[in-house]
Every structure is written in C-alpha cells, then in structure tokens.
C-alpha cells in the first residue's frame, strides 16, 4: 500500500524489506467478518500506533502478526517469512516477535526473574546463568531489578506490565506488539509504562501498538492507523492525523477520545 508521508520528518525511513507485510488479509469468526481486506506494510524500525473503536478488530489484526489468530484469506509476511500453518514457521516467527498484553499475562507460579528467563532458557537454549544476567539487564532497564525474586501477584499493575515488557525483550525480538498495554492500569501507573515504551521506541525496534494514549501516539508514532469495523480506515502521520484527520469516521472518533 502507498505510504503517504506529508510530513517527512514524522517517519523514519524504513530499511530494505518490510518488518511486517499484510496483503489482502481477511478473517471471519463464523459468519462475522472481523478483518476486511487489510493491506499494511510496516518498515523495519517503524513505530505504528493503531487506534479505533472497541470491536474494530485491532487486537485481532495484531494477533495475526504472531499467528495467535489464523485467517482465511490473504498473507502475512514477517521479517521476510510468510506465516503458514506450518508449526516450525510459526515458532520461528514468534521467536522474533515479542508481545505485551492488556492483562499482563505473567506466569503467576514463577518469580519475576523466572518469568523472564523461561523462554531464553527453553526456546533460545541459553544457559541459566546467562539468561538470568540478561533478564536482570532488562529488569534494570524497566527499572524494577529489585523485584526480581518476587511473585507477580505481589507487584502493582504498572510493575507487572513492565515485567511483561522485560520478559518479551529477553527474547531479543525484532518486532514488539503491544495490545492496549495501559488499559488495565490505574491512572497513576500509566505513565511509568508509557515511559518505558518511549525509551524502547528510541532504540529503533519495530513497534506495533494498539493504544488509545493519544499523547504517546503523537510522541513516538511514525504512523497512526485508524481501524473501524474490521477495516483500516485511515493511515496518517501523527501530526496530520490529529490536526487534520481525513476520514469522517476518524474525525468522529477523535472528537470522542480527545474531548
């Protein structure tokens, strides 16, 4: 799809080859057409924020990138690998795609550190000690190294979500998916998580973020995508998106969330 960049400064130039390319993607839940003709190319290092009304298919779209959801028509290519039903391909893609969920989904029976080392040890086959050092580095980056030996239930929501981010980063992913990472948080904890994400964005990792945090979108997004009713309705640079939305539905939506 054509990438229009009215404000060239808003978008980082993408290196050769897309990080994620979705072409003619359709998905149905039974009779319900949840994704309709999705075409989207995300450049390497690009930061995309997806917003839109509830039930619009944002989560579903995001979950197609690591094939937590499958689809009936179209293709998804991640880092040059086309996702098929083949389990090996799926695992290969998932190794390079980190995901952060609205409900954190930390493993409650493992300590914070064990949450972070689980996949490096069992998927990357890293030695335990090395994995722990790596995990401590990322826990320090999200500013909670001192919680490493606690169980997740003992942490606040904001801390849990930062652990979830560290857990995903421990796999050294090329692409990070965030599905409403701050929606389940109390207001005073939203900032600490967003700050972590802003720092991450500065590192040049490819990010797809479903979020209604318009301040965040303005600050870090290269492009903002508006989804409604299973379709991509508008793709725009953030400045343009907030100042002069092109589509009628975008305008209506922004009126509601920015009021």
């Amino acid at each position: 799809m054509a990438r229009q960049k009215p404000d060239p400064a808003a978008a980082k130039p993408a290196r050769a080859g897309a990080a994620v390319a979705m072409t003619g993607l359709h998905k149905w839940y039974g009779e319900f057409h949840v994704l309709r003709d999705i075409n989207l190319a995300v450049g390497r290092g690009e930061r995309i924020v997806i917003c839109g009304p509830s039930g619009g298919g944002k989560s579903t779209l995001l979950r197609c990138v690591n094939r937590l959801e499958d689809w009936q028509r179209g293709s998804v290519v991640v880092d040059g690998v086309e996702l098929t039903a083949d389990p090996k391909t799926i695992l290969a893609v998932r190794r390079n795609v980190g995901m952060v969920f609205q409900q954190f989904n930390l493993f409650p029976h493992l300590t914070v550190l064990e949450n972070c080392t689980l996949a490096p040890i069992w998927v990357r086959r890293m030695a335990k000690k090395q994995a722990e050092e790596l995990a401590m580095r990322f826990l320090a980056r999200v500013k909670i190294p001192e919680q490493a030996h606690k169980y997740p239930a003992r942490l606040s929501g904001g801390q849990q979500q930062r652990v979830a981010i560290a857990r995903a980063l421990c796999m050294s992913p090329n692409i990070m998916l965030f599905d409403e990472p701050t929606s389940a948080l109390d207001p005073e904890m939203v900032k600490e998580v967003l700050d972590t994400m802003v720092e991450l964005a500065a590192d040049g990792i490819t990010m797809l973020v479903v979020s209604h945090e318009m301040g965040f979108a303005r600050q870090v997004a290269d492009r903002v995508i508006f989804m409604d009713d299973g379709q991509i309705v508008e793709v725009n640079a953030p400045k343009q998106f907030f100042a002069a939305p092109q589509h009628e539905r975008t305008r209506l939506f922004l009126q509601q969330v920015l009021r």
Partner: peptide
C-alpha cells in the same frame, strides 16, 4: 487456567509440550 496464560506462552515461541509442562 486463563486463556491469557496460553497466549503468553505461545507468544514466547514455546512449543505445545513446553507450554503445557512449564506454564
């Protein structure tokens, strides 16, 4: 066990048996 636990485990590229055995 909530669905989110399966999803988090799968998103970390754990195979079926590792997901079951470890998570």
């Amino acid at each position: 066990v909530p669905r989110g636990q399966y999803e988090a485990a799968r998103a970390l590229a754990l195979t079926y048996w590792r997901m079951m055995g470890l998570v």
